[in-house]
Computed example of a mutant assay.
Amino acid sequence: MAELGNNAKVGLVTALNGALADTLALYMKTKNFHWHVAGPRFRDLHLMFDEQAAQLIGTVDAIGERVRKNDEYTLTSIGTIRSETRIKDQDDVTISADAMVAELRDDNRTLRKRLVEVKDAADEVGDNATSGIVDDWIDQCEERVWFLNQTTK
């Protein structure tokens, strides 16, 4: 990758750290719903939420390493995740299974928007490695939205 100007690198790193915060927050929410889902679709949703959480946590290290490969720093704590995420907390463990599905679908849409921002920032600075890998993250996100959306029908 060519040497980036400071402003260009800041924009890319900010986008990556935002995606990292959203991914971590969405992972936690998805695990929360995995643990607390109840009702007649328990087994199917319990398993789907666990699969989706595993997919989310599987991207965390790659996102963080993209930041470090730009010689910058990643998020360091729950506090920094909270300050950077667009994913809203959900502490009500009694919400319905349908509400859980809808919330995760919408949150994955939010994450997708953030990932598109990463893609745009990477393309703007010519970071082909980040641009390429974020395509996979967007595709995974779109698949989660698809599965969750189909579950609401």
Score class of each variant (00 low, 15 high):
Met1Ser: 14
Ala2Arg: 13
Glu3Phe: 14
Glu3Trp: 14
Glu3Val: 01
Leu4Ser: 06
Leu4Ala: 01
Leu4Tyr: 09
Gly5Tyr: 14
Asn6Gly: 13
Asn7Ile: 15
Lys9Met: 09
Lys9Ser: 11
Val10Asp: 10
Gly11Tyr: 04
Thr14Cys: 12
Ala15Met: 01
Leu16His: 05
Asn17Glu: 04
Gly18Thr: 05
Gly18His: 04
Gly18Lys: 06
Ala19Arg: 03
Ala19Thr: 04
Leu20Ile: 07
Ala21Val: 05
Ala21Pro: 03
Asp22Gln: 00
Leu24Trp: 14
Leu26Trp: 09
Tyr27Leu: 07
Met28Glu: 12
Thr30Lys: 01
Asn32Asp: 02
Asn32Lys: 10
Phe33Arg: 00
Phe33Val: 00
Ala38Ile: 12
Gly39Ala: 02
Arg41Ser: 14
Arg41Trp: 13
Arg43Gly: 15
Leu45Cys: 11
His46Tyr: 01
His46Ser: 06
Leu47Gly: 13
Leu47Glu: 05
Leu47Pro: 08
Met48Ala: 07
Phe49Met: 01
Phe49Thr: 02
Glu51Asn: 02
Gln52Leu: 04
Ala54Pro: 07
Gln55Thr: 12
Gln55Val: 13
Gln55Ala: 13
Ile57Glu: 10
Gly58Ser: 08
Thr59Gly: 09
Thr59Leu: 08
Val60Asn: 03
Asp61Thr: 07
Ala62Gln: 09
Ala62Pro: 03
Ala62His: 13
Gly64Leu: 08
Arg66Val: 08
Arg66Gly: 06
Val67Gln: 06
Arg68Leu: 08
Arg68Thr: 14
Arg68Cys: 04
Lys69Gln: 15
Asn70Trp: 11
Asp71Trp: 06
Asp71Val: 09
Asp71Met: 06
Tyr73Val: 15
Thr74Trp: 07
Thr76Cys: 08
Thr76Leu: 10
Ile78Phe: 15
Gly79Lys: 09
Gly79Gln: 11
Ser83Asn: 11
Ser83Pro: 11
Glu84Ala: 15
Glu84Val: 05
Arg86Lys: 12
Arg86Asn: 14
Lys88Ser: 11
Gln90Ser: 09
Asp91Trp: 02
Asp92Cys: 00
Val93Arg: 11
Val93Ile: 14
Ile95Asn: 00
Ser96Asp: 00
Asp98Thr: 09
Met100Gly: 02
Val101Met: 05
Glu103Val: 11
Leu104Cys: 03
Arg105Tyr: 02
Asp106Met: 05
Asn108Tyr: 01
Asn108Asp: 05
Arg109Pro: 09
Thr110Ile: 12
Thr110Pro: 05
Thr110Lys: 13
Leu111Ser: 03
Lys113Leu: 13
Leu115Cys: 07
Val118Ala: 06
Lys119Leu: 12
Asp120Phe: 10
Ala121Met: 06
Ala121Leu: 04
Ala121Tyr: 07
Ala122Leu: 03
Ala122Gln: 06
Asp123Val: 10
Asp123Gly: 10
Val125Arg: 04
Gly126Arg: 04
Asn128Ala: 11
Asn128Leu: 15
Ala129Arg: 15
Thr130Met: 09
Thr130Cys: 08
Ser131Glu: 08
Ile133Met: 15
Ile133Lys: 15
Val134Pro: 01
Asp136Ser: 07
Asp136Lys: 08
Asp139Ala: 15
Asp139Glu: 08
Glu143Gly: 10
Glu143Leu: 14
Arg144Val: 00
Trp146Asp: 05
Trp146Met: 03
Trp146Asn: 00
Trp146Cys: 01
Phe147Val: 06
Leu148Trp: 04
Leu148Ser: 01
Leu148Asp: 02
Asn149Phe: 12
Gln150Thr: 11
Gln150Val: 11
